[in-house]
């Protein structure tokens, strides 16, 4: 097993734009590689993406493995997986990390299966066990109610996907250089098995509630459909998305796709405003992963205050317009 060496980070790009989680992983990978006294490499796949190589060095990689081919212009599982598998077999990294994005989770499952190795999903913590050199992979399961640390003892590489925005962004060092290794992979015209016809940027925000960074959610306490206009203004100033508790959806104030919770959507924004929401467990399971929770409620004993980072006790009809005005002042000088 000692022939497997080095930490690899899959550099995810679409049309030459790199997913930020790839840089975050280079930061985390640097620490792991240093602990193992090994090297850190980025593995970059795409069509005409060579200009990104210097960026990968700038974010801390010692080496870049580059695979370029027109077949790799759009992401399709089969050619990406086969190319990555070939590179791993040739150069044998000890650890392979990917972002837990839709692309990363699609690709990692295929690659780990083809390699017959273990894969840990959606990690929020990574560390090296000093005695064994094993990668300790910590991740939430059971909808976030349980944390588990997973080991992959006998198979290499140890593979993990890592949740975006968990690892800190490393600093970028302009002009930092490393080694470039081109990996030659020959592709079959036929092997992609799929053809991307169109990629559409979504306008209906509710469909992407689970990916929203700022959410303003209202509950029964909002009282009426008309009153949601106050929340909409706050969301507008913040570039955020509206959402609702089940009580508000059942009252017909917002359509069902806006419902957060056990029978709705699970969200994980940077900030979640809970306005006139009491904090029932079925609602909490859908939003307690938010980085910051702000609760506005006129009942000081509402359970939502127990989990809220910040709370304001008061009538939302006064508090929300005040917040909107204050944000407008601070954000649009």
């Amino acid at each position: 097993m000692s022939k497997f060496q080095g930490v690899w980070v899959f550099i995810e790009q679409l049309a030459g734009e790199v997913a930020p989680v790839s840089w975050e992983l280079l930061g985390a990978g640097r620490t792991l590689a240093d602990n193992l006294e090994g090297e850190l490499a980025g593995v970059l796949l795409g069509h005409e993406v060579k200009h990104l190589v210097s960026e990968v060095w700038a974010y801390g990689a010692d080496k870049v493995y580059l695979i370029e081919d027109p077949v790799l212009q759009f992401y399709r599982t089969a050619p990406y997986a086969r190319a990555l598998v070939q590179a791993v077999k040739e150069y044998q990294p000890e650890i392979l990390l990917l972002g837990a994005t839709s692309l990363g989770r699609d690709l990692s499952g295929a690659v780990a299966t083809a390699l017959g190795t273990g894969l840990t999903a959606d990690c929020t913590g990574l560390a090296i066990q000093p005695e064994t050199r094993f990668l300790e992979q910590t991740r939430p399961a059971f909808g976030g109610n349980v944390m588990a640390t997973i080991l992959c003892r006998r198979h290499r590489p140890q593979m993990a996907t890592v949740r975006p925005r968990v690892m800190p962004m490393p600093s970028r060092r302009e002009g930092r250089r490393g080694e470039l290794v081109r990996v030659d992979v020959t592709f079959d015209a036929d092997e992609a098995r799929a053809e991307v016809i169109e990629i559409i940027t979504e306008k209906n925000k509710a469909v992407y509630l689970d990916r929203a960074e700022i959410i303003v959610a209202g509950g029964r306490g909002v009282g009426s459909k008309e009153n949601f206009a106050l929340l909409e203004e706050l969301a507008g100033v913040l570039g955020g998305t509206l959402a609702a508790s089940r009580a508000a959806v059942e009252a017909g104030w917002l359509p069902p796709e806006y419902q957060v919770g056990q029978t709705g959507v699970t969200v994980r924004p940077k900030i979640y405003f809970a306005i006139g929401i009491s904090g029932a467990i079925q609602h909490l399971v859908g939003m307690q992963g938010a980085d910051v929770i702000v609760a506005v409620n006129n009942d000081p004993d509402a359970p939502i205050f127990k989990i809220a980072t910040y709370g304001i006790v008061g009538d939302f009809r006064e508090v929300v317009p005040a917040l909107t005005a204050e944000f407008r002042l601070r954000l649009d000088p």
């Binding site: 399709r76 994005t101 839709s102 692309l103 098995r193 799929a194 053809e195 991307v196 016809i197 169109e198 990629i199 559409i200 940027t201 979504e202 469909v207 992407y208 990916r211």
Partner: peptide, 12 residues
């Protein structure tokens, strides 16, 4: 369904 996007794809 991808991050903020939808992809239309035809597969064999």
């Amino acid at each position: 369904k991808l991050e903020g996007k939808r992809e239309i794809v035809r597969g064999r």
